[in-house]
Design a protein around this nucleic acid. Structure first.
Lengths: 329, 329
DNA sequence: AAACGTAATGTAACCACTTACATTTGGAAG
DNA sequence: CTTCCAAATGTAAGTGGTTACATTACGTTT
């Protein structure tokens, strides 16, 4: 139906090899010939067939972004941001981007190989077995926002420890000592990073931490609101709450508003991620800005470098995170 | 490097045709033979090569979701929701999902054909020329959240008129007559739908509409805040504001808070889309729920039906939208 | 036991390119 | 006008499957 290289070859009176060269390495064919071929191609509406090309070249030019997360995958503003960065950077290359969830790719055995991708970016809670399977199939892997102990993989991270440290220091500077953390059950990596960073920063400031200082909750508004209410009505009400992300922080603000606890006068609240939400609230919310867009772009850069066969000198990259001080502190 | 159908054929002592059948139509080969083939495949770590298969079958099993939008593509919660639905539904099929932006696909001529997709879902402000180009290349097209005048395409929409009507009726029921619309410059289709629906609903209720009733703004928080401030400090302050989406509504709430205008007592605010934001605010925000996830899934259903060669009896589907009444009205 | 029909399997062409290697071409140098 | 060499082009063998068609196997029926 669509015309092929043979049709063009016939019409322009050159061999298929020459036609092929015109489209993949134009320099190698003489000006005049090239023009004739292009004209014939024009007439026939010819466009190279990517499948056949992939077959002959043994390359697919496809990479994938897999989100390793159960619920609300791309809906999570954090992953959406990374995804946006990945898309933008991928668009600069000749690669095409496939998107799916890790769950979906686990179903059929060997499915990944069939998918015929050259490289993959795993976002979130990546599992070691999946990574190993990819490596067995010679598919390049880059991790974003997680890390697998024992596997030395290229990964792109945000500086969680630095972000949390800035929060604690900022609150300390504002005179807070009764600081509590409302820790949402985020991905294992993020949860433990932020939790440990919190303990470390508190220790560095010499602020005592006890069992009351950290409260866990599910990462949704209602759970956060409930948990924050408990924190605020407990025996020793904190003067500042560090919520482990912005959604949880918004729940905290709701609890405060309902309990008529004035923010920031009676309670300081800090979130994490600097999502769009932060400036939609009044007062606007203090949070830590993570460069998710840049993280996504960096992933693609890393991956394409790997695919070019380059050795990565520094596989793991940790991007700085910056505290953005706003009205809630 | 990877083993091929020939290797399996040799090891199991059958022809390549039989091996092929074992993997694409197992019923057609005898139990015993099938087992031998599968064992050989196991030993050789054989998996069918998707590229070669696509080549022989003249099918790629790939569809794409293109977002026709300049900025903040996938970051827009609305499109993220659609995308999530598309992903989920695609995962149920044998298709793979490519994702990109319309802009990126417009760059190189004929690029679409090279991409070798069988169908495409265009989200947002789709352009007629792009659609025509796809159709010329026999690529099935489904539109979501937009419509192209003069082109009879399958499209999946949300009932904008109904959603807006519910808003106006709800505000009317609450006794409001000084109702203003804060209209963000969203996509042309959405903007005009919501605007016209507003005028129509107001007319139906017999509420007079003048030049002061509708104010335009850019679809970001700051612009919305500015515009809302003007509305609220103008000569005839409205008692209710319908913002054309939740982001703009949040700007309206900010303006109200800053001007010490009490919501909902002195001002009712309604958004549109029922984004996650709505329940993160205190009071929670009244908004219109759009079934974006379902819209995404429906797109894939439509597209796969088209690809199966089915004739769509009712190409355009309009999903109902429901007003969710919360604390701001 | 021969004849027959269907199910199972094999043969080989085809899908649309790329590319190693062979051949031709064209112009500069002798 | 040769000779020579690099550049341009052609030839044909892959790339890994699918599938129309041909052939063989095998259980039934006569």
């Amino acid at each position: 139906m669509n015309s092929t290289i043979y049709d063009v070859s016939r019409l322009s009176g050159v061999s298929t090899a020459t036609v092929s060269r015109v489209f993949s390495d134009p320099e190698r064919v003489r000006e005049g010939t090239r023009r004739r071929v292009l004209e014939a191609a024009e007439v026939l509406h010819y466009h190279p067939n990517a499948i056949a090309r992939a077959m002959a070249k043994q390359r697919t030019d496809k990479i994938a972004f897999l989100i390793c997360k159960q619920r609300a995958t791309i809906l999570d503003e954090f992953y959406a941001g990374i995804c946006d960065g990945i898309m933008q950077e991928t668009n600069k290359t000749d690669y095409q981007l496939l998107i799916s969830t890790a769950d979906a790719w686990k179903t059929t055995a060997g499915t990944a190989q069939r998918k015929q991708i050259e490289g993959v970016i795993l976002g979130g809670n990546a599992q070691a077995d999946m990574v190993l399977e990819f490596q067995n199939q010679h598919i390049a892997v880059v991790l974003v926002n997680s890390r697998i102990p024992g596997l030395d993989l290229p990964c792109v991270l945000s500086d969680e420890e630095g972000g949390v440290r800035q929060i604690v220091e900022h609150l300390w500077d504002r005179g807070h000592t009764r600081i509590a953390m409302l820790a949402g059950r985020l991905s294992p990596y993020i949860s433990s990073e932020r939790y440990n960073a919190f303990l470390k920063a508190m220790r560095q400031k010499g602020i005592p931490v006890d069992s009351q200082s950290v409260k866990m909750c599910s990462p949704d508004v209602e759970s956060a609101t409930r948990a924050a209410t408990e924190l605020l009505t407990g025996s020793r009400r904190p003067s500042a709450i560090f919520a482990s992300n912005d959604v949880i922080a918004s729940g905290t603000l709701k609890a405060a508003a309902r309990l008529k606890v004035k923010v920031p006068e009676e309670l300081a609240v800090v979130g994490y991620d600097d999502s769009a939400l932060c400036t939609m609230l009044e007062p606007e919310m203090t949070s830590v800005h993570t460069h998710r867009h840049r993280m996504g772009r960096l992933c693609v850069e890393r991956l394409t470098a790997l695919l070019k066969g380059e050795e990565l000198t520094e596989p793991t990259t940790i991007l700085p995170a910056e505290l953005v001080i706003r009205g809630t502190t």
